[in-house]
Amino acid sequence: MTVPGDPNDRNRAWDERDWTQGRAHNNPGTPPDPVVPASPPRMELPSGSNPGSDGRARRVEVSTAAMLLSAVPWFFWSFAVVSWVVGLLGFGWGWMLLVAWLISGIVVFLRPVEEFLARYLFRLRLPTLVEEQRIQPIWRNVTERAGIPDRRYKIWVQESDEPNATPTPGHTVGLTRWALYTLPPSHLEGVLAHELAHHLGGRDWLSLLSFWYSIPARCALIGVRALGRLMRSVPAVGCAVIGFVLLGYFGVLVAVLTFDDSLALPLLFLTPLVAPPILAWLNRREVHQADRRAAAMGYGPSIIQVLYGWQMQHQQMLGRDTSRRSQFMSSSPSPAERVHALETLVR
Rank of each mutant, 00 (worst) to 15 (best):
1 M>W: 07
1 M>K: 08
3 V>A: 05
5 G>C: 13
8 N>E: 05
11 N>H: 09
11 N>Q: 13
12 R>G: 02
14 W>S: 13
18 D>F: 06
19 W>S: 11
20 T>H: 06
21 Q>A: 14
21 Q>C: 09
23 R>A: 14
24 A>S: 08
26 N>G: 12
30 T>Q: 02
33 D>K: 10
37 P>I: 02
40 P>W: 02
42 R>G: 12
43 M>K: 10
46 P>H: 03
50 N>V: 05
51 P>E: 14
52 G>K: 02
58 R>E: 14
60 V>K: 14
64 T>F: 10
64 T>V: 10
66 A>N: 11
68 L>W: 14
69 L>F: 11
72 V>D: 11
73 P>F: 01
75 F>D: 03
78 S>G: 15
79 F>I: 09
80 A>C: 11
81 V>Y: 09
84 W>C: 04
85 V>E: 00
87 G>I: 03
91 F>A: 10
93 W>G: 15
96 M>H: 14
97 L>E: 09
103 I>Q: 03
106 I>G: 13
109 F>Y: 12
111 R>S: 07
111 R>C: 00
112 P>H: 07
112 P>I: 00
112 P>S: 08
114 E>V: 01
115 E>L: 00
122 F>A: 14
123 R>A: 11
123 R>T: 04
126 L>H: 03
129 L>W: 05
129 L>Y: 07
131 E>R: 02
131 E>C: 04
135 I>K: 03
137 P>D: 06
143 T>N: 05
146 A>H: 02
146 A>K: 03
147 G>P: 06
151 R>T: 05
156 W>R: 01
158 Q>S: 01
161 D>H: 00
166 T>Y: 07
169 P>T: 07
170 G>A: 03
172 T>P: 01
173 V>M: 05
177 R>S: 07
179 A>I: 08
179 A>Y: 08
180 L>N: 06
181 Y>M: 13
184 P>E: 15
187 H>E: 12
190 G>V: 07
191 V>H: 12
193 A>C: 09
194 H>Y: 13
197 A>T: 03
200 L>R: 10
201 G>S: 06
201 G>H: 05
204 D>P: 02
205 W>N: 10
206 L>V: 01
209 L>N: 02
212 W>P: 07
213 Y>N: 04
214 S>W: 12
216 P>S: 13
219 C>G: 11
234 V>I: 03
235 P>K: 06
241 V>S: 03
247 L>R: 12
253 L>T: 00
258 T>F: 14
258 T>A: 15
259 F>N: 13
260 D>K: 01
260 D>G: 08
261 D>I: 02
261 D>V: 09
264 A>F: 10
265 L>F: 10
265 L>G: 05
271 T>Y: 13
271 T>N: 10
276 P>L: 08
276 P>V: 01
279 L>I: 13
283 N>W: 00
287 V>S: 15
291 D>C: 07
292 R>T: 12
294 A>Y: 07
296 A>T: 09
296 A>H: 11
298 G>V: 04
305 Q>L: 15
305 Q>Y: 04
311 Q>H: 08
312 M>Y: 05
314 H>T: 14
314 H>A: 14
315 Q>Y: 09
316 Q>H: 04
317 M>T: 13
322 T>C: 10
326 S>N: 11
344 T>S: 10
344 T>Q: 15
345 L>A: 06
